[in-house]
C-alpha cells in the first residue's frame, strides 16, 4: 500500500509529467487560458490516462512480450486512440452534462504526448499492473494540478499590467518556467 502511495505522490509532485518530464506541453499551453476548460481537460485526461496505462500494460505484457517490443509505440498509439473513442461515446450516452464540459477536449487527448509518455515510462521502469494504474493516475493528477494552477495564474495575468513585449504567450512561457523551477523544490522529497 505504501508503495502505491509513494508512486502517487512521486508522480504528482516530484516527477510531475509537465514540470519535470516536460511532456504534454501543448494542452498545458493551449487550454490553460480559462479555469473551467483547464479543469475539464484535467478530468478527461485523468480518466483516459488511467485506463490507457492499464490497457497498455496488458498489451505490452501479454501481446508484445520481448519479441515484438518494437511495436510498443505503434500499438500504444492505436490503443489510446481506441480508448479515447470509446470513452467519448460512453460519456456522451451516460452523462450529457459531463460530455458538454469535456466537449472538444476528449478527442484532443489522443494527441497528448503525456498520454503516450506514461505507458512508455511504465514499460521502462518495469511497473506491474497495479503500479502502472497508479503511475497513470498519479501522472494525470499531477497534470491536472499544474494545469489548474497555471490556468489560475494566467487568469490573473490577464488583469496584470504586463510590459507590452511580454504580453500573451511570452509571459505564459516565463511563468511556466518559474513554475517548473518551483517544482524542482520537490525533488528529493522521495527517492
Amino acid at each position: 500500500m505504501q508503495d502505491y502511495l509513494l508512486i502517487l505522490i512521486g508522480t504528482v509532485f516530484v516527477n510531475n509529467i509537465v514540470m519535470a518530464k516536460i511532456l504534454g506541453l501543448c494542452p498545458f499551453m493551449g487550454v490553460s487560458k480559462k479555469l473551467e476548460t483547464a479543469i475539464g481537460m484535467g478530468f478527461a485526461t485523468t480518466f483516459v490516462l488511467t485506463l490507457a496505462s492499464g490497457a497498455s500494460y496488458l498489451i505490452d505484457t501479454y501481446l508484445l512480450g520481448t519479441d515484438l517490443f518494437y511495436l510498443r509505440t505503434l500499438s500504444f498509439i492505436v490503443v489510446i486512440a481506441g480508448i479515447v473513442g470509446f470513452t467519448e461515446m460512453f460519456i456522451r450516452k451516460t452523462s450529457p452534462v459531463l460530455f458538454r464540459v469535456l466537449g472538444i477536449y476528449l478527442p484532443l487527448i489522443t494527441t497528448n504526448c503525456a498520454v503516450l509518455g506514461i505507458p512508455l515510462l511504465n514499460v521502462q521502469e518495469r511497473h506491474g499492473f497495479v503500479e502502472s494504474l497508479f503511475f497513470g493516475l498519479g501522472g494525470a493528477l499531477g497534470f491536472t494540478l499544474v494545469l489548474v494552477l497555471f490556468a489560475a495564474m494566467r487568469e490573473r495575468l490577464e488583469a496584470a499590467d504586463v510590459p507590452l513585449p511580454f504580453k500573451g504567450t511570452s509571459i505564459a512561457m516565463i511563468t511556466a518556467g518559474l513554475m517548473s523551477l518551483a517544482f524542482m523544490g520537490f525533488s528529493g522529497l522521495i527517492r
Binding site: S75, V78, V79, G82, F86, R92
Partner: peptide, 25 residues
C-alpha cells in the same frame, strides 16, 4: 507483428463499432 497489429485493430474496431450501436444517442 502483422498479426498482432491486425488483431489489435480488429478488436478495437469491433469494440468501437459495438459501442457506436450500444451507446447511440
Amino acid at each position: 507483428a502483422i498479426l498482432v497489429m491486425a488483431g489489435i485493430a480488429l478488436v478495437l474496431g469491433g469494440v468501437l463499432g459495438w459501442a457506436a450501436i450500444r451507446f447511440r444517442v
